[in-house]
Write a protein that binds this DNA or RNA. Structure first.
Length: 486
RNA sequence: GGUCUCGUGGCCGAGUGGCUAGGCAGAGCUCUGCAAAAGCUUGUACAGCGGUUCGAAUCCGCUCGAGACCUCCA
């Protein structure tokens, strides 16, 4: 490979050459979901983006430890003392941990449907309360957090005297400190910009634990600081998440790590962009979320049909992870057809016959594909190149272009790596699980061929139509008839 | 209000100083018993107005429009 991987680091807003701290090992932490309801398709996009990144790093030969958390501590909702998980538990009259379990399983199933590889470690916030309490103590030892009425807050003002709080999200500390909007009743904080490390629980709060300060629960930002460094070390390579987490979540994480560990833990901050729906961010809290299940069944007012998981995955990969992606039926249908064409071509590629010479430059194609992915995981460009390969395959099939067996093998290998290993697509149509179906189809096609030879087109068309109804599309090519299963 | 991002042909979406992105849809042609598929050709897009430049979709300014974050959020 000629070009080197470059990634866009949110920290300095530049493309940087990717150099792991301890090659060949790579540590990657991604903020996972809060499991109080089904994830929506926008959440799926984020995790699919990081799945692409994970898969590509693996493909490059890195030993990646991929940590993605499950937030199972409910964090506060509005001004009430109730949190999302408890609220759901109350509404459904079940235990909070029952809510957590249900939606954790659902999340796993969903991501499996979209063919995302599971992370290496998937730690939960509730499983790391001792570590979180210890971490708070470390920050307090540095004098950068204070207890107030049973809660513990991070002292942003003091921290910012020596550190640049707000650097990641491009915020001005003075403005943050000056901003006092809508903070009634927050008298426990010395300053509105301070954030909770530990919150004392109200009596009716269900999820609460003992700590040196009160019966309460940890602040939202803390779990990521704790679990990332526990499993990846005080310093690690990649921290990822959705752009909406830049502030305050990731900003707070940076501050906590610096305060508690005296380290800037993260080398590369990667942020994925939002999936929009009619130009608006998809968000659970605004009711604009479409769930994966609705996508897969088409059961939603704005969907004109169902889409399968691979179509959606392909659709997502056709946009760069740092761009917003707008969602529409037309675009999804285009992706559906494009993917189908790509997969058929790959199938054909594996059955092409070699020539004595090559009329196409496979080595160059290889460079173009890697070049695209090395440029901050630019999957849309790589896909554009793959469609060039699709054209090649069809031309070779027609005898208009040629490849030697060596080039052919190389091309097959590259294409299969990119489409299946790196992009994580699956060819769900050619299940290939049952050779008997294929034998049967060959038999039927022979009968039809005989009919055609006798110019009995009534019969041959009848066979084709019936097979089409059943779900087999018949194509009469130059070197015989083929079929695809729809 | 503050900070920031974006505005590309019918739709989605790359690109970012001069050279075809790509997919889908459309049109024409070839192939074909028909169909499907495939191939070839084609549309001449960069919100608007100024400026910089030999040259700008790409840089600068302004205007209009959209969105994100500032509160839980992937």
């Amino acid at each position: 490979m000629q070009s080197k991987l470059r990634v866009y680091n949110t920290l300095n807003r530049e493309l940087e050459e990717f150099q792991p701290l301890h090659p060949p090992f790579v540590g990657m932490y991604v903020c996972g979901p809060t499991v109080y309801s089904e994830v929506h398709i926008g959440n799926v996009r984020t995790f699919t983006s990081f799945d692409l990144i994970y898969r590509y790093l693996l493909h490059l030969g890195y030993k990646v430890r991929y940590v993605r958390n499950i937030t199972d501590v409910g964090h506060l909702l509005d001004d009430t003392s109730e949190d999302k998980i408890s609220k759901k538990a109350r509404l459904e009259n079940i235990e909070p941990m029952e809510v957590v379990q249900r939606y954790t399983v659902d999340f796993h199933n969903t991501m499996a449907t979209f063919n995302a590889l599971p992370p290496s470690i998937e730690p939960t916030a509730t499983g790391h309360l001792i570590e979180q309490i210890e971490f708070i103590q470390k920050i307090m030892d540095q004098g950068l957090a204070y207890e107030s009425n049973g809660s513990v807050y991070f002292d942003v003002k003091k921290y910012s005297e020596s550190e640049n709080y707000g650097a990641l999200s491009g915020r001005n500390v003075d403005e943050l400190l000056a901003n006092t909007r809508s903070l009634d009743g927050q008298t426990d904080k010395r300053h509105p910009a301070d954030f909770a490390l530990w919150k004392k629980a109200e009596p009716q709060h269900i999820m609460k634990w003992n700590s040196p300060w009160s019966l309460g629960f940890p602040g939202w930002h803390l779990e990521c600081s704790v679990m990332s460094t526990k499993y990846l070390g005080k310093q690690f390579d990649i921290h990822g998440g959705g752009m909406d987490l830049k502030f305050p979540h990731h900003e707070c994480e940076i501050a906590q790590n610096k305060a508690g560990l005296q380290e800037d833990s993260v080398k590369y901050w990667l942020h994925t962009n939002m999936l929009t729906f009619n130009g608006r961010k998809m968000a659970k809290s605004e009711g604009t979320g479409v769930t994966p299940k609705q996508m897969l069944t088409g059961d939603h007012d704005l969907l004109t049909q169902a889409y399968d998981a691979m179509t959606i995955r392909f659709f997502m990969l056709q946009a760069h992870y740092r761009s917003t992606l707008d969602f529409s039926n037309e675009a999804l249908q285009a992706a559906e057809k494009g993917l189908k064409r790509l997969l058929i071509a790959i199938d054909d590629l594996n059955n092409l016959s070699a020539s004595d010479s090559s009329s196409l430059n496979v080595a160059e194609m290889r460079e173009k594909l890697y070049g695209a992915m090395n440029d901050d995981f630019n999957s849309p460009i790589a896909i554009a190149h793959l469609f060039e390969v699709v054209k090649w395959v069809n031309l070779i099939k027609e005898g208009k272009e040629s490849l030697t067996s060596e080039d052919l093998d190389t091309l097959k290998s590259i294409v299969n790596h990119f489409v299946f290993d790196i992009f994580g697509l699956k060819d769900e149509q050619s299940g290939g699980d049952d050779n008997k179906v294929d034998d049967l189809m060959q038999f039927i096609l022979e009968i039809r061929q005989d009919a055609k030879a006798e110019k009995n087109y009534n019969l041959s068309d009848q066979i084709r139509d019936r097979l089409n109804d059943i779900g087999f599309t018949i194509k009469d090519g130059k070197e015989g008839t083929t079929y695809t299963v729809s």
